[in-house]
Design a protein around this nucleic acid. Structure first.
Lengths: 232, 232
DNA sequence: CAATATACTAAACGCTTGTTCAGCAACCTT
DNA sequence: AAGGTTGCTGAACAAGCGTTTAGTATATTG
């Protein structure tokens, strides 16, 4: 329903910024030229620098615009998470879910977040730090409410959960081809959340002593590597 | 002990390739110039193209070189995992652990893998596909042996676990500043593996009905967002 | 209505880029 | 020792880059 992007803004300036956001997200800052951005926005290259001073200025404007949207997503996620937690619902609400809930399907923002986190620039570091703090606080609250097990290293556990969440966005394309569903669409997200919930609630691996000997029916093909060619 | 890189190779060609690998990993393919690579390798720019045909040819050579090393790491990891599983040890062996075990501390290979996976190029897609298949087969074997719980969506679960593992490499820097330890050093890796094992064995969240009502003491500051300024 | 500011463009400038070219040593051949 | 391949370089080239400049319409102001 509610979207974090308001594209009622149809000035040329906003058009340039949106075109740059999309191109930067798809191909990276360095691989995109000012002329390409101008063409995509339907203006002249000179207008780009007239509005933003330089290509780097445009990059900065796109950064703040995107980060603003990300923070709105995460704030909404935080509220949503706390609410679900208090009502005793599924506690596993993910960043990916918030993204697919609040962003239109073809939004370039997930890919831009990927660029932001990949390049070691301060904007990505700042947003990660803020999200880490929020995750840490949420987990603390869940522990005191009995909704999460206590941990002897809560910083690492918070980082672990946040990072697993972000990985869905970072590796979206690879995941999509591997499982046959885009994990940022409702269908893929549902499958993903099911497995995540199962693991976060009960774990994935069995404790070693609990193995029942003798009752191991073979399902199908077992582990041997297929013969990949291995050049020296 | 055993390293996957053999730098007994000190030809100028190998020197160029190593310098390019390091620079590409740190700053991305587009942001690095041929002249920079040549200077870093102590040769002239013309020698770079003499040996590799073009900058793109150099990129291809670096790609195959890196992918070769990655496959050796993953093959070793696979053996290691199966062995530990069969002896009943800790089943949670990670890609990150294999990296820190087999690569020298300052190796550019983790960062290069990050570029490969996040730039949508076919090399990254291929390596992810191969690793996904291996993870999937390993989990199947673990299930038949009783070392892992069965799953109703094994593809998604395998992708989930692989992706969580890769996230450590993708977000290494952000994790390091968040938890105060580089997760690819033995110290950070140990902390990380502890929390991962705990979650993968028992889960992180408590089942909802187990909540004891009335016993919820407040520890400190609870989840409200810090007052960030939000420009429209 | 004159004057000034704003939105915008075509053309060009200087610089950096990847790449080419001609030539120089050092090594094999035979 | 002559001839040729190999490893390597300095200098230059064309193309593409971000940016500047000069100028034109279209608003906005006094």
């Amino acid at each position: 329903m509610s979207s974090v992007v308001d594209d009622g803004d149809l000035t040329a300036r906003a058009g340039i910024r949106n075109a740059a956001l999309r191109l930067f997200a798809e191909r990276g800052h360095d691989a995109v030229t000012v002329r390409e951005i101008a063409t995509a926005a339907g203006v002249s290259p000179a207008l780009v620098v007239h509005h933003f001073g330089s290509k780097d200025g445009l990059r900065g404007a796109v950064d703040t615009h995107a980060i603003d949207a990300f923070d709105r997503v995460f704030a909404e996620l935080d509220d949503h998470d706390v609410a679900e937690m208090l009502t005793g619902g599924e506690a596993t609400t993910s960043v990916a879910e918030a993204f697919s809930r609040m962003l239109p399907p073809g939004s370039p923002l997930p890919a831009y977040l990927r660029r932001l986190l990949l390049t070691n620039d301060p904007a990505g570091a700042a947003i990660f730090g803020r999200w880490f703090g929020a995750t840490r606080r949420l987990l603390d609250a869940m522990v005191t409410l009995g909704a999460a097990r206590p941990s002897d290293d809560p910083d690492v556990r918070a980082a672990f959960l946040l990072v697993n969440d972000l990985a869905v966005i970072l590796l979206r394309n690879q995941i999509a081809t591997a499982i046959g569903d885009d994990p940022l669409t409702p269908a893929g997200l549902d499958r993903w959340a099911r497995q995540a919930s199962a693991i976060y609630l009960e774990g994935a691996f069995a404790a070693p002593p609990a193995e029942p000997p003798g009752s191991a029916p073979n399902t199908s093909n077992i582990p041997n590597e297929p013969p990949e060619e291995a050049p020296s």
